[in-house]
Amino acid sequence: MELVIQQLLLGLTNGMVFALIALGYTMVYGILELINFAHGDLFMLASFLALTLVGLFGLGDASGGTLAVGLVGVIVVCALFAAGLNWVVDRVVYKPLRKAPKLAPLVSAIGVSFVFMNLGLFWGGLPMDEFGGGVAPAAPKSFPELLPNINLLGEDATLRVTPKDLLVIVSSLVVMAALFWFVNRTKLGKAMRATAQNPVAARLMGIDVDKVIGATFLIGGALAGFAAVIYSLYINTINFQMGYQNGLYAFTAAVLGGIGNIRGAVLGGLVIGLLRAFSDQFIGAQWQPAILFGTLILILVFRPTGLLGSTAREKV
């Protein structure tokens, strides 16, 4: 029983991170029908920025209030960085291709993904102490354990719940609640859903569709930046390929949930997280990809639009 709950916790924490990244894929797809392949690598770059900032601020030795303030600062800077970078990429790379065939921005997104990955490689090669100076650029960098690695249930308890688990789950829930509030309750949020559902009608309502697209990239980027910080704090190691791996999980989550659907992305992220945890524990890690993609295929066979895709009457 404890084992099941332990894996549930592991699945949830990982799933939250996948969900946060999946939201960025799904929101952009919803509005542009573009799979932004660079999104995972944006997440990776934000982790490198997080590690750099942790070093610059000397957070490795900080504790208590200083650490808390510092972490909030790192989250804010990384979210702003990823939001801004995502926005710039849209303006410079995707926007000129709005009227081109869909394949053109898609191939460009793959190009941006490679550019980001090589930036990550370059960044990892910088002679910074926090990167373990001298270690090869491609080598994983260790991200300091800033949160106490203790069991909140007591060190003797069989079930292990750490402050890191709580941080990931609680802060993700808060961020997602804020996103849902924004999308469902604010004027700009409603305009985003309207633009995704019918861009021509949105124009006829006086909505500046370009601005709405820009806002979508900003928000998706900010979510990836936030996810990068909490994931790095949780997993304590980063490398230039982590965006590719996690991006693939997140993209799968978005498709599983119904690409373009915001609730679907969250649901998909959690499903992928839980599937991974349980298949690793009870079936074997070597079977994980087979289980994941087998499930994806099964779901798409029976529900081609994904779990909450547009045949369901769910609101976006």
Partner: peptide
């Protein structure tokens, strides 16, 4: 200058009220 377009172009997954709110976007 507003238009009610051919084929209605309602926002299918916004509620009736939200559709009307979008009409008042400006």
């Amino acid at each position: 200058l507003a238009q009610s377009p051919e084929g209605r172009k309602i926002f299918p997954r916004l509620t009736v009220l939200e559709n009307l709110e979008m009409g008042a976007f400006i």
